[in-house]
Design a protein around this nucleic acid. Structure first.
Lengths: 148, 148
DNA sequence: TAATTTAGTTAGCATAGCTAACTATATTTG
DNA sequence: CAAATATAGTTAGCTATGCTAACTAAATTA
């Protein structure tokens, strides 16, 4: 299916959606400095907290990075005691990586800062626009659940 | 107004919106490798293409990075002939930085790849949901225009 | 004119991405 | 069953991107 066949209206919406996502994340990312961890570590930790224990390879795939990159991210998280590593008894090559209580707490705190910042901005919207936003985001989430 | 007073409904919407933005950008970013330039350079170039010529300090502020960081990003873009640097005749300390034709072409190409990818995914939506998405994104854009 | 402020650079550090080459463990196959 | 192959992760070494501290040069202020 050639993408160039998209009609101009869809391209216009895609363009605005793309731009909105960029500006939104640029804004909320400013809260992350408070956690003391870099973006790659926070993102990997989030996968572990919300997706449960993973091997290094699974984590790398989820984050769309190569294994050597994830290897160092995991090393950093382990050094900060945010994750725990055990070896798989079925396969000694694999590592079992999971978030520690400290890791879950730190991620939760960082998340709350981002969400609270965003929510405080959304408060400026009139109720009916807010409701519409909520419905639309659900549409988007359902759509994106089928991606990859 | 303390953010912690946001009602749970707004927090829920903020959370979903945040998550949707993350997954959307993670998806479209995969197109960027085709440009041969890194994310910081593409983003700075985008500011120049859509916002017109800037000084280094203005660029750094727009990208929310410190001047030394932008200094190297600009050096990289100049080495690839994507931008052009002249000195301000009014103030010899300032640099006037602008995108070259090559820079505009490269940015446009990368943008098209992202937008086309996103648009092709949006085609799966029924027309009325697509229309609703378009309206909601406009609401978001108006809201975010007043941020910062 | 001298002091201060402003714009940008340089040096040096940490994080985050990659590929190529390696080790160690599993699996497959002759 | 032993040898070949495949798989999981690490190490080494490169580039890019973020920072702070300390610097140069130019403009402004006292």
């Amino acid at each position: 299916m050639p993408v160039s066949s998209s009609n101009p209206e869809i391209l216009e919406i895609a363009d605005r959606l793309h731009s909105a996502a960029i500006h939104l994340l640029r804004r909320v990312r400013r809260q992350d400095t408070a956690t003391g961890e870099g973006p790659a570590r926070l993102s990997a930790l989030s996968v572990l907290v919300f997706g449960g224990p993973k091997t290094l390879g699974e984590l790398a795939a989820a984050e769309q990075v190569k294994p050597p990159t994830m290897s160092r991210i995991v090393a950093g998280l382990a050094r900060s005691r945010l994750i725990e590593i055990t070896s798989d008894p079925q396969d000694a090559r694999r590592m079992r990586i999971r978030a520690t209580r400290k890791g879950r707490r730190l991620l939760q705190k960082g998340r709350e800062l981002r969400i609270a910042d965003l929510a405080s901005q959304l408060e400026a919207l009139p109720p009916e626009e807010l409701a519409k936003l909520g419905e639309t985001v659900e549409i988007l989430q359902r759509l994106m659940a089928g991606w990859h």
